[in-house]
Design a binder for these strands. Structure first.
Lengths: 223, 223
DNA sequence: CACATCATTTGACATAAGTCAAATTCGGTC
DNA sequence: GACCGAATTTGACTTATGTCAAATGATGTG
């Protein structure tokens, strides 16, 4: 993880290298970091600035849970009843469309896993969250967190920042689909998040990139 | 707009018809509304439940501004210094990638226009927001709104809900790019937001759908 | 170490979409 | 109503990607 241990962190996506060409989201650099990294720094700073009371209160309602490789933390028809902070391991979020799995997100150490619509609305969702390795997560129940947000407005601010961060991450993903072909999206992933390619099965990566397994193989063969 | 005049509303995207096939995001219906509409209802209820003090305070810092057709409310290199609630007219958000305009969002009455990264970080951004018709907007400066969020926590809650709504909308857009071909994305737009196709130039629609103008023409010819 | 199963790659062919150029249509102005 | 410029459509050709099937490589188990 990029910013060291700070307890609860979110989307610690680091920059490992440059894509083939300069892209939109790297235009405004501040202190050598792109916007996502810049925001992650702010997020980390926000977490570090939480009062001891807020930290304690949060720790009190958070429980450690374990999941086996292949196990689902969430399945369609279920309500996402809390947030899963990945203490150790790898997970992915996906849904099934036309009998096909569509992987939407990978989670590594210090990432926060939720299914947004189910979580925010507390209604049955349509997504899976699955452990790709044995997992240790810190689970914070939604009702308890809502309570804490009332008593500690700094947690409401943190929640807003995390949601903003997720929205920016979605904008970046949308940018990839909107402007890049399959080869470019793979190059972006390889440069920006090589750990994904190193640790995740190609089946899931192809699904995440929106290409068939065969096409991904051909792209990889051309490098 | 779908839910009538409630002052500040956000992303009043209504369901006008069904796409060719049932899609992921319509699975969990509540009271006949899909999730986006469900959330819009909650958002509207939240706005309506604002105290008179919060409303007044918000109105006091909000100013009406006019823009001409073609005029830019925001350009790359500028900071998005506040939010623009569209009182009347149409606008679009876009950026330029490889000498090409990529339209990312259309705004109609009661939509709230911001460039998220520039707005949230108050740093120079990379996006344009342009009036497609003569516009009347209610502009709320960022610093003033931050102040109000401190004095009125209900506005911080509202801000979180709006950001969640935007993230869900991004998830739905991502779903379109991730799982549909060009024809399906056009069909989705035609069914779900026919007003877009009725009132916006095909150049912008093609850009928004991630297809060339020629391809959009061919798709339209096949219907 | 052998074997079976799963993951990945490769071959062949079809379709979707992009690009470039030209033609047609539409809208605004005089 | 004519004219001009912009918007849109159409034709021809190229490239990217998907699909189906078969082959190869990797991993796990006995």
């Amino acid at each position: 993880m990029l910013y060291g241990n700070v307890g609860m962190n979110l989307y610690s996506r680091s920059r490992q290298g440059w894509p083939q060409r300069v892209v939109i989201f790297d235009h405004s650099e501040i202190g050598g970091l792109n916007l996502m990294e810049n925001y992650a720094v702010r997020l980390t700073a926000k977490i570090e600035s939480l009062t001891a009371q807020a930290r304690e209160a949060l720790a009190k309602v958070t429980i450690v849970r374990h999941f086996e490789r292949g196990e689902h933390m969430l399945s369609p028809g279920e309500v996402c009843r809390g947030s899963y902070w990945i203490q150790r391991g790898i997970a992915r979020k996906y849904y099934v469309n036309d009998d096909r799995e569509v992987t939407t997100e990978f989670f590594f150490d210090d990432d926060l896993a939720i299914s947004l619509q189910s979580y925010a609305l507390q209604t049955a969702g349509t997504e899976y969250i699955q452990a790709l390795t044995p997992l240790v997560v810190q689970f914070t129940p939604y009702p308890a967190f809502q309570e804490l947000k009332i008593r500690h407005p700094e947690l409401l601010e943190l929640d807003l920042m995390m949601t903003e961060y997720y929205a920016m991450w979605l904008e970046e993903r949308l940018f990839q689909f909107h402007t890049m072909d399959a080869t470019e999206r793979y190059a972006w992933l390889l440069n920006r998040e090589p750990h994904v390619v190193q640790q995740i099965a190609l089946t899931h990566i192809a699904s995440y990139l929106g290409v068939s397994l065969e096409t991904l193989s051909r792209i990889r063969a051309r490098r």
